[in-house]
Amino acid sequence: MITVSDVSKSYGRGKGGRALLAVDHVSFTARPGRVTGFLGPNGAGKSTTLRVVAGLTPADAGSATVLGEPIAALPNPGVQVGVLLDASAQHAGRTGRETLILSQLTMGLPRARVAEMLELVSLTADEADRRVRNYSLGMRQRLGIATALMGEPEVLILDEPANGLDPAGIRWMRDLLRDYANRGNTVLLSSHLLHEIEVVADDLVVIGNGRIVADGTKEQLLSSAGTFAAAADLDALQGALQAAGVGVSGGTGGLTVDAEADQVGRIALAAGIPLRELRPAGSAGLEEMFLQLTADTQREGVAA
């Protein structure tokens, strides 16, 4: 269980410059048994929020707790919370194995855990004895995962864990996190890629410009993403929907409608337009919603 309550953090105060509000009254909960996806564009405040939870960045206001306590109050945090914030933040001069041994010693675990973890993340003995400076980002990511999982924590916090992993590695990570949550643990992972999160997350927390813009189960957010409708005469359908006062946007081979499927069906029937397709917009709609929700902060300035 992770609880973030009203956390704010700004940077660059003083010198008369305007403070950058990186995180603005953020609140959300990540629950046991579920994978919570923390989604937002670059610079939205994801990492800062996770750093506050991990106790590495002091919040200006608000609080974050893990298992009901601030992380600093946990007697041996490593065996309760596994954290991977930045896979490249590892001493380049140590071997991968030595990096794990230091964590193993700190947490007070048996030495055998090191070999178990190396096997779990598929780092060979040969790779483990290389210095981290010679690791690819994907290998560092695996090493970071190994550190996070070593203490068998009931809470996992991962910032962009799929970065640098190849497709097979991403699939492996996804299965591992799914399995970890299924055993009753809390998993919170961030990403700026909707598709990456969508396939694994149960709950979604969307952040844009330092604020939470959407928060709910994946199903809820998917169903709130509108309805996809297609007809032979799209223009007529669009006209009828607009006449009924329903929001419509064009898509490939159909329309994304801001209404329930029932309502879209009734409007089409009343207008005498035979429908070819009618279904929840689902992931395409979620992506549309994600882009719109975060439009303010998108560097590309997506037209909403």
Binding site: A54, G55, P77, D86, A89, H91, T99, L102, S103, T106
Partner: peptide, 11 residues
């Protein structure tokens, strides 16, 4: 930057 791990394990 190994402090990220060090200070997470020992806040």
């Amino acid at each position: 930057r190994s402090g990220l791990t060090t200070f997470t394990l020992v806040p």
